[in-house]
């Protein structure tokens, strides 16, 4: 296959939700994100990068948000994942789903879904073992790594071209609890506190209350059907751009030197 120049493309390109109550969940997220409903439940979610909201494939099948990442060659990416202990399967439409060694899944696609007009979300991986997780996804995404300096959660960004594919951080203090590594989907909003308050009044549970990080205000919640999601309110551009990071060679720099933080089609939800 001829090499494709992906240097200007996003890597994280879409989201899917599997829920115990897909129609209710679609309506809920549209309301939560302030999206005017379309002609069917979930249609409006395409505006924030959601390509599908579907029910469980089996009563005990896992639910939750699954990110989709753009790769040059899905078959080769799958092979790299398998070499590093991951598993892969194809759905009924022939699309690849990769399960990493911790059992966390993502989708791999070779083209951006045409219905995605913009994006208002980001993803982080909440990991027990940051090094292993970084190594696995760097190989699968064919990405490089930027590491935040002196971050208490050992936050890293997996990047390709001038785009951030995902963050990876160390999940803290979970021994003895039924918490597993997972992808956390952050919907970018303009007023995080009010979004959290509305979510709490409408049946979501707050897992991490509004918290300031070096680059955003964020909160992690569980929707009424038990699926994890998050809100993020990015800090102003000057603060974000000056974040100190080191690259693959441990050379110091600022985040803005390595990536475009605000591509034109990205933004926050009012």
């Amino acid at each position: 296959m001829a090499a494709i120049d992906r240097s200007g493309d996003d890597v994280f390109v879409g989201l899917e939700l599997e829920s115990a109550a897909p129609t209710d969940a679609a309506v809920y997220y549209e309301w939560l994100l302030g999206l005017s409903p379309g002609s069917r439940p979930g249609e409006a979610l395409a505006r924030v990068g959601v390509t599908a909201v579907r029910g469980q494939t089996a009563p005990d099948a896992p639910t939750g948000w699954t990110p989709a990442f753009l790769v040059d060659d899905a078959a080769r990416a799958v092979m790299r994942a398998q070499q590093l202990g991951g598993l892969a399967e194809q759905d009924a439409d022939g699309r690849w789903i990769v399960h990493d060694p911790a059992g966390v899944r993502c989708r791999l696609v070779e083209a951006v879904p045409p219905e995605i007009a913009g994006r208002h979300a980001n993803v982080d991986y909440s990991a027990f073992d940051v090094e292993e997780t970084e190594a696995f996804y760097r190989a699968v995404f064919d990405a490089r790594r930027l590491r935040m300096v002196d971050d208490p959660y050992d936050m890293r960004f997996l990047c390709r071209g001038r785009r951030i594919a995902a963050g990876v951080f160390r999940l803290h203090g979970v021994a003895g609890f039924a918490v597993r590594p997972c992808w956390i989907v952050y919907f970018e909003v303009a007023d995080l506190v009010m979004h959290v308050a509305r979510a709490a009044e409408s049946g979501s549970r707050v897992l991490i209350p509004p918290t300031r990080s070096p680059f955003n205000l964020y909160a992690v919640l569980e929707d009424p059907w038990g699926d994890l999601f998050a809100f993020s309110q990015l800090l102003p551009r000057p603060l974000l751009g000056s974040l100190p990071v080191t690259d693959d060679d441990d050379a110091p720099g600022e985040l803005i030197d390595h990536v475009d933080l605000f591509p034109a089609h990205h933004g926050s939800i009012a």
């Binding site: 951080f169 803290h172 918490v179 707050v206 991490i208």
Partner: peptide, 26 residues
């Protein structure tokens, strides 16, 4: 040690460290 303050519905009001996810039902 990790500390969390919950409301009676199980929502976290404040937690330290910030990125600790607790099992609210437990």
């Amino acid at each position: 040690a990790e500390v969390g303050l919950f409301d009676l519905g199980g929502s976290m009001i404040a937690t330290a460290p910030a990125r600790a996810i607790w099992d609210a039902e437990a």
